[in-house]
Amino acid sequence: MKKIISLFLLLFIYSTSFSQELLATVQVNSQQLGGSNQSAYKALEKSLRDFINNTSWTGRKLQNFEKIKSNFAIVISEKDGNRYKGSIVIQAVRPVYNTNYESPLINLQDTRFSFEYIENENLIFNERQFSGKNLIDVVSFYVYLILGYDADSFQTMGGTQWFQKAQQIAQNGESQNNYDGWKQINEPRNRSQLIREIMSPNMAQLRSTFYTYHRAGLDNMFNQDQTSSKKIIFDALMQLKMYENSFQQNYFFDLFTTNKADEIFNIFNSGNNGGIIIGDLKQLMMMFSPKNTDSKWSKWK
């Protein structure tokens, strides 16, 4: 666990109740547009930061240390009047009990991101209908996705109510023809696909593993004897073998293995793994994440 801890800085301390609001940073990068007006992008950056951090997404009022640390990074590649096109990266982390380590919850890049924005306009979210401009719809979708991931890591299926909010936003977006990323067909790895897979009963085991991995596994890694926690994480991961014939095209599953690859490798990259049959986990991870075979899984002893 010491190797894992050394990879991250202390961002916030653990709260005994899982957090349900965000403490977000926002960056808007317009370098690809050359000498365009930077004030509009700084205004967009501030407006989004205020929108994410000041909106009451869950109805709970929390201290900053209780909130979910997250980051939204937008790269704008095209501009046509008030219409913009580019990509957005969404990242969020979760504290691990009694340590200064933070575990990655989600880290994804959405390259189908276009929106309309007028400098200094008010950003108002209505979950019951599409905004017409796509900016707050996409951002709100990912806010609820982060809330769902976080809650799932503290309680079995705890994120369902927030995933349902994200699903409603996706359904609102599917009726729009002016913006990509919402259609369930001809757009692989889109927002609608992701939330549909998260909510699918077929993915209940992955969500259950997500909870066990974090709450029963990582949150107990502070113990001097880590073998029992490693065994819990090992058993939880081995439960995913049920997806060996269906994981290839699953966006939700791919995000899990991609976001957790470094962490999983570091947890078991020591000689103190108790009675775990590391060869079984090695074969599993080589199947699920073959691109990491040489850099990670083959190095396990």
Rank of each mutant, 00 (worst) to 15 (best):
N202C: 05
A166M: 12
Y144F: 15
A170P: 06
P201G: 08
S153N: 07
A151W: 05
F141K: 11
Y213Q: 04
Y179H: 05
S229V: 04
S140I: 04
G159H: 08
V138T: 15
I185K: 12
L145P: 00
N223W: 12
T160K: 14
F130L: 07
D180T: 07
F222D: 12
T156Y: 15
A236W: 06
E127W: 08
N177W: 05
N126D: 15
W182F: 14
N172V: 04
I233R: 01
F130I: 06
M199P: 10
Q164C: 01
L237A: 15
S229A: 13
R196D: 11
I146K: 02
K165H: 10
T212Y: 08
F154V: 01
M238I: 04
N177R: 13
R196I: 00
V139C: 12
T156V: 14
Y144S: 09
L240M: 14
L206S: 02
N186H: 09
L194P: 04
Q239F: 03
I169T: 07
Y142K: 05
E127G: 12
I136E: 00
L147C: 08
W182H: 08
D225G: 06
E244H: 00
K241L: 07
M238L: 13
D180I: 01
N186T: 02
M238Y: 08
I185F: 13
M238E: 11
G159Q: 10
N134T: 09
F154K: 02
T156Q: 15
N178T: 07
